[in-house]
């Protein structure tokens, strides 16, 4: 059974890059375009990992983490944040909300896969 990763990013090109990278390594990818959209996926289906952008319209990445942690079923799933270096302060906020880790943009595909593998083993 390959693992399912939910990604949330408002940038289409990043979404495509991330999902193509993950899919090429055999993961199933669910795609959402903003925070609100991401939370609609938490409907009982199995999600093994969430990778979310920090800055998104409607609901930002921190909101996504909070939303995930509020749900019994998804309370303990890993959530990775995609951040840029300039947002160190937000990183703290995200962690406080319950984020598992982060990937710094710009990232290399291999790095992304390495981190994903790590949290998903």
């Amino acid at each position: 059974m390959n693992k399912t990763i939910l990604i949330a990013d408002d940038s289409e090109s990043i979404r495509q890059l991330v999902s193509a990278t993950l899919e090429s390594s055999g993961y199933s990818v669910l795609v959402s375009v903003d925070g609100e959209d991401a939370l609609t996926y938490l409907d009982g289906s199995i999600i093994d990992l969430v990778i979310t952008d920090l800055n998104m319209p409607k609901l930002d990445g921190i909101g996504v983490v909070k939303g995930i942690r509020e749900k019994e079923q998804y309370k303990f799933i890993p959530v990775l944040m995609l951040t840029t270096e300039s947002q160190a302060s937000k990183k703290e906020a995200a962690k406080k909300a319950g984020a598992t880790g982060w990937i710094v943009k710009p990232f290399v595909e291999d790095k992304l896969l390495a981190v994903v593998k790590k949290v998903l083993r």
Binding site: M1, T4, S28, S32
Partner: peptide, 18 residues
């Protein structure tokens, strides 16, 4: 320990309409 991640099973059928 990550072998099962690479296991290519049936792709999971959950396509959300964008």
């Amino acid at each position: 320990s990550t072998d099962d991640d690479l296991d290519m099973g049936n792709p999971k059928e959950r396509i959300k309409n964008i």
